[in-house]
Each structure stands twice: as C-alpha cells, then as structure tokens.
C-alpha cells in the first residue's frame, strides 16, 4: 500500500512536513525534545516497518534538501541585521570567529584521521561546526557524505545547547559577547536558540557568529579543496 504511495515524491514531502509539524508541537510542550530527532525517528521507523528503501523516500526528500541552498542565502539577513547592531565589535568578532572556524576544521579532521577514519568520513567531519545548509554544501565540495555531516552538525548543536554555558563558566568566560561568539561558532542555530532565554546580546552575537563561521569555513574549505586536487 505505502509502497505504491511513496512512488510519488509528493508523498515523501507530505510525510516529512507532517512529522515536522508534530515534532514542533511536541517541542513547544517539552523544550528538551529536539525537533529534528523527533521528526526523523518516526520516518525511519515507518520506512523500516514498511520495508521501504531510503532511496525511494529521498526522491521526494531531495526536493526539501534542495531548499537548503536558498536557506543559505537567507542567512545574510541575520548576519546583516546583527552586524548593524554590533558595528563597533565587528572587526574583532570577525578575527575571533575566523580563528574558531580554522581550529574547528583542523581539530575535527585531524582527530578523525588519527583514529583511522576513511577519507570520506574525515571530509564529512570537517564542516561539523557550521549551520546545516552551509555544512552540506562544504561537505559536497570536499566529497564527504552529507548524511554524516548533518548528524555531526546536529550533535554539535545539541552539545552546545546543553553544555556550552557550563563549559564556558568553567574557563571563566562571562562576557555576553564572548559567550555568544563561542556558542554561535561551535553550535550554530541550535546553540543560538538556547541563548534566547538568557540575553539579547548573547543571541545577537551568536546569530552573527553562526553565519560568519559558515562563510569562513566555506572559504577555508575552498582553499583546502584546491590543495587536495
């Protein structure tokens, strides 16, 4: 029954939207439930139960994934808006986020490589700190596996949202702008969303930092891919 239904891409899209809607509603009740995980698990379960292949589901899924491109362009809006508000700190914030992006790419790639991961996995790990749409583009540039990148990006976000503030307190980083820069660089949107309840300044810096970290990472990845060629 579902076999014949999934043959049409529209059904996969509808299915994804439906479970996303449910996940959002649950997230509103229980803040600790990350919508991406709550939305994905039932779809995986459904595909497994009906013995349906991911490839068939993804014919429709690709239509959604494609919109990550325009979503990347849309990131210019929070970058511009918060850039205006932060004008005085911007040059230094740029240096800070650039160094964070560089350190993130090197540590992620080197640790995976040292532990014997194959090249495609190493390349998938490199963009793991940045917001999903940019991470996916960078991963494709480097011939990694986008699914692994997305998984790592989500986990980096959840780590930052749950432990970021605590870890920063351990090293006595208390300035609102420093907290925002650190969470935005390390945990993109998921981390940024966790700051909203704490401080406007943290949120604003973090939104700027997540977009900037994505831009710097893709510039650095371009240099890396030229070097690897």
């Amino acid at each position: 029954m579902i076999r014949s239904l999934l043959a049409s891409p529209a059904v996969s899209v509808a299915l994804s939207i439906a479970f996303y809607g449910i996940a959002l509603a649950l997230h509103r009740r229980w803040r600790a439930l990350p919508p991406i995980i709550v939305a994905s698990i039932p779809i995986v379960a459904l595909l497994l139960i009906t013995n349906e292949s991911y490839r068939i589901y993804n014919r429709g899924g690709d239509l959604l994934t494609w919109w990550l491109g325009p979503a990347t362009v849309a990131l210019a809006v929070p970058m511009y808006r918060n850039g205006l508000a932060l004008r005085r700190s911007l040059p230094r914030l740029g240096i800070i986020v650039f160094c964070a992006a560089l350190v993130g790419m090197i540590t992620a790639g080197v640790v995976a490589w040292l532990l014997g991961a194959p090249r495609a996995v190493v390349m998938s790990a490199i963009p793991k700190s940045v917001t999903t749409p940019i991470a996916v583009e960078v991963c494709q540039e480097l011939h990694g596996i986008p699914q692994i990148t997305v998984g790592m990006v989500i986990l980096a976000g959840i780590l930052g949202a749950s432990l970021g503030q605590l870890l920063l307190r351990l090293i006595r980083v208390r300035d609102d702008r420093a907290i925002g820069a650190a969470i935005g660089s390390a945990s993109h949107g998921i981390g940024t969303a966790s700051l909203v309840r704490h401080s406007e300044m943290q949120t604003s810096v973090s939104s700027w930092a997540m977009a900037a970290c994505g831009v710097f990472t893709s510039l650095l990845a371009a240099i890396l891919s030229l070097y690897l060629r």
């Binding site: 800070i96 993130g104 540590t107 640790v111 930052g160 660089s185």
Partner: peptide, 25 residues
C-alpha cells in the same frame, strides 16, 4: 572516530572563541 572528532573539535572551537573573545573584546 566520529564521536571523538565531534567532542574534541566542539570543545576546541568553544574555548578558542570564548577565550579569544574575552581577550580581544
């Protein structure tokens, strides 16, 4: 490899940005 890379790199980015920002700002 994936989890170690994730955790080490996450902490490295967080601390690089946090400490650098505390110093520069």
């Amino acid at each position: 490899a994936i989890l170690a890379s994730l955790v080490v790199s996450f902490i490295a980015v967080l601390f690089t940005a946090g400490l650098l920002a505390r110093w520069l700002l």
